[in-house]
Design a protein around this nucleic acid. Sequence first.
DNA 1: CTGAATCCGCGGGGATACTG
DNA 2: CAGTATCCCCGCGGATTCAG
Lengths: 127, 127
Amino acid sequence: MVTKQYKGTPEEAADLRRADSLAREIFGDIANKWALLIIEALGERTHRFSELRDDVEGVSHKMLTQNLRMLERNGLVDREVHPTVPPRVEYTLTEPGRALRATVDAMCDWTHRYLGDIEASRSRFDA
Amino acid sequence: MVTKQYKGTPEEAADLRRADSLAREIFGDIANKWALLIIEALGERTHRFSELRDDVEGVSHKMLTQNLRMLERNGLVDREVHPTVPPRVEYTLTEPGRALRATVDAMCDWTHRYLGDIEASRSRFDA
DNA sequence: CTGAATCCGCGGGGATACTG
DNA sequence: CAGTATCCCCGCGGATTCAG
């Protein structure tokens, strides 16, 4: 994915390997359907939990919570709990999260841009 | 993900719903770890099957074949079979594939850019 | 070398119920 | 309303084998 040739001390080499495996782990975290759709849905404004469940179509309660925790852990979303009754929890993209959203936007644009080509290719392939 | 408000005939509305569900399906296809890593690995030049297996670290024979089929079906990679013995099969990104790769590159860049922040956030969260 | 098929275990992920 | 926990099943995905 990223490993570059590098000449240095063994310590530096070890650091690079560590960073690389970490990068892989992170990539594996976010490169999944639900995480990306959640980031896309969050967009520019904060959302409540239930708003997200409505906006991210087809996501289950469990997957939503699970992915939100993961995104929070990685510092992509900020979780703000209002101690009211009933509780009100708001999720907002952090700066890293917004940066990633830009690339997710690009992926969505790509999907729509090539929708026709893909559909055609599928027909050809399935025949 | 994409649905825009739109006033038109019922037929046009139906078309939009169809396109939207197709877009979702495609997004679900490509928004997975292995597909994205394969696209990233393919880069600018063609790869043989075994080269890909070496370059995409950790991918199993099965997952590689499966995802390559899917990418081929969607017209993101071109599969060229040389009728030699032993067989030689080369995979190349198509134009749509290369366009998508640009966004995957952006995701990889993002990962490295925020590696430190993410690691820090994780430590905070896990505590 | 590439790829299809089979077997199989583990975990993703849905449904539901229960707390605060 | 938001979150956790439990149950449970289906399918992802790895290992292996066979074919071209």
